[in-house]
Design a binder for these strands. Structure first.
Lengths: 352, 352
DNA sequence: GCTAGCACTCCCTTGACAGGAGTGCCAACA
DNA sequence: TGTTGGCACTCCTGTCAAGGGAGTGCTAGC
């Protein structure tokens, strides 16, 4: 997303003031108001008529628009885009806020799941937006170790640990009652043979040996295969989200068209859009901003999405971000998202 | 919740028709409309004036009310309650629908987590309501087996399996680098000593032996203790919910006061109310219906909740249910909730 | 005991109207 | 040439009154 031409410094100043004012007030900004604001905040004195002239050309160029002829102006997607790329000051979280966030993470040391939850919750809280995050995933699922435990007479639990520390599990219905000893022996043998294997290898092994395998062994291998081949590809189930409430706390969202609200909630609950953009986010550096209509997903046409990847190069990674109203404090939002990626990176690097 | 007196058969008939009609149309029901309906559906012929007389007394007795003087009638909480306890026909899911539901469960055999998700999803879908469910929990957390796995030089993963098959995990930051062999030895020793132990026992053991323990052993025991003593008490985190979207699909909910919507969503996202009622639900038989103002939680004063416990006596159990508009098809809702408990019971009994 | 009829209440929609906000344009000025 | 004050114009928004409609309560009669 790049912009084709530069605006004159004065136009930039006016556009910037307009966007900031609109974000602040949620009302279309009038020329008079803008003129006052320019004098007050930026110390430049232009009458409202002058501002009006500039606004007219900004409107021609597609940066702003009026909902109706006797209303003030609001930024278009292009206007926001220009603002975000050229005009917006980079903001930083206050030390106090950073401290507050870190403090919460210290409460749940070494519990990866909790980090993920907490990250979403913190972002949602801080930005009054919905937050989305995928748990960290290893680049590929390789078997570290698995265990077979007899729960009941003929029900066993298969617990597998991947190289990156992911734990997965499945229950097995055994054909015939057996003992824990038998299962342990079986597990030991297979562990030796299959350490470091991925789904492919397990599958191949199962096929090759299929003649020689006992029934229970076959069951275990099938299960192992299923668990290893579980989606590294990001599916909707992989995503965690939080903060629909925070979104509903914003008047301009909560009071808008119920159908719109429903569609946004649906996108969040079903995580319909993230799988589509996640690969691209994983591939690129830094914080990505997707404004309004730039979203492929229809339901988000008047929302903005701010996403980034986190994780440790070549080891584990994930995607996190927020979904908020287009009229959001971009500077702050970007700062928060960036801070959370750094936070998670720090935490993860302790573990890897 | 019991009702103090019976109504005359005709009053019952009128109340029943009114509730059904109101549930169907979402509009206050007029005497004329009711008179027509009685003729059409129940084959009894009463003029609208007669119906009006009966309605007046039903209103005096608190079963129905008018939003204003020239409007039709709507049921009060008491009216719904009478309807649910005395008038409503028990309904059953169609064979077709049962088949459809069972089919979905066959897709995810033996994956407990998926069952939980699917149950919520099915209920939400079938009843256009939000669904809530707690994963099955054993009556008490006893250690079955745990494993210590070296992930990196000085990061280990502790995976514990409880008697009921619950798997929990935590990462340990070791003081000094070690080997997998060392860890395995340690795990084997502790497993032998602590098999079947609950949090108490582990804690006691750790304190008693604290002098003799190596640093890593202490770490492992601490972690073990934490994981075992994790809340059996149901905390908000234990709950899974789905179907906010389905709720928003209902016009009368989606178009109502945004503040109300927010509060309901908040209750769901934070699962604020279930922990409060869960113990009582676990203790009682059958499907519970909580209508409107009977809810302790303020935000649900105009919603109804239908809950039941599921699980296997003395072994594992949980709570499931739905949160929907007070104006819901109670018969169907109760049938669905009951069916899902039976479904889960069947599935669980295979595993226990 | 039931019902037709009627007066009455209250809601809800509609249209008219006033007030206000904000613009575009023009003419004047530095 | 760039800037600005002034003014006519457009369009929104809130208010108010009026009319129509829906539904009731009550009464008198069958």
């Amino acid at each position: 997303m790049s912009l084709d031409h530069h605006l004159s410094p004065r136009k930039e100043l006016i556009l910037r003031a307009l966007v900031e004012e609109y974000i602040r007030t949620a009302e279309p900004v009038a020329s008079r108001q803008l003129s006052d604001q320019l004098a007050l905040v930026h110390g430049v004195g232009y009458g409202s008529a002058t501002v009006r002239n500039e606004l007219a050309t900004l409107e021609e160029d597609g940066f702003i628009y009026q909902p109706h002829v006797s209303a003030g102006r609001m930024p278009t997607d292009l206007g926001y885009r220009y603002f975000v790329e050229r005009l917006m000051g980079e903001s930083q979280l206050s030390v106090e806020e950073q401290r507050l966030i870190r403090h919460q993470f210290y409460q749940v040391q070494h519990q990866l799941d909790e980090w993920v939850r907490l990250t979403a919750s913190v972002m949602a809280q801080a930005l009054q937006s919905a937050a989305i995050i995928t748990p960290p995933r290893g680049v590929d699922a390789k078997l570290k170790h698995f265990e077979l435990l007899l729960l009941y007479e003929s029900v066993a639990l298969l617990v597998v640990v991947l190289h990156d520390g992911t734990v997965r599990q499945e229950r097995l219905l055994l054909d015939t009652p057996t003992t824990q000893d038998e299962l342990s022996k079986l597990a030991r043998r297979l562990n030796e043979r299959l350490a470091g294997a991925d789904a492919e290898v397990v599958g191949a092994y199962a096929r090759r040996e299929s003649q020689r395998l006992a029934q229970d062994e076959r069951l275990a291998l099938d299960s192992l295969y299923r668990l290893l081949s579980q989606p590294d590809v990001l599916t909707p189930e992989t995503f965690y989200h939080d903060g629909i409430v925070q979104l509903l706390r914003r008047d301009d969202f909560a009071h808008s068209d119920p159908e719109r609200i429903r569609r946004v909630v649906e996108v969040l609950e079903r995580s319909k859009f993230l799988p589509a953009i996640a690969p691209q986010v994983m591939a690129s550096e830094g914080v990505q901003v997707i404004i309004g209509g730039e979203n492929a997903e229809d339901a988000l046409k008047d929302m903005s999405v701010i996403v980034a990847r986190y994780g440790i190069e070549g080891q584990v990674g994930g995607v996190l971000g927020i979904v908020g109203p287009r009229r959001m404090q971009y500077g702050r939002a970007i700062a928060v998202v960036r801070y959370m990626t750094e936070m998670l990176n720090d935490l993860l690097s302790e573990l890897y």
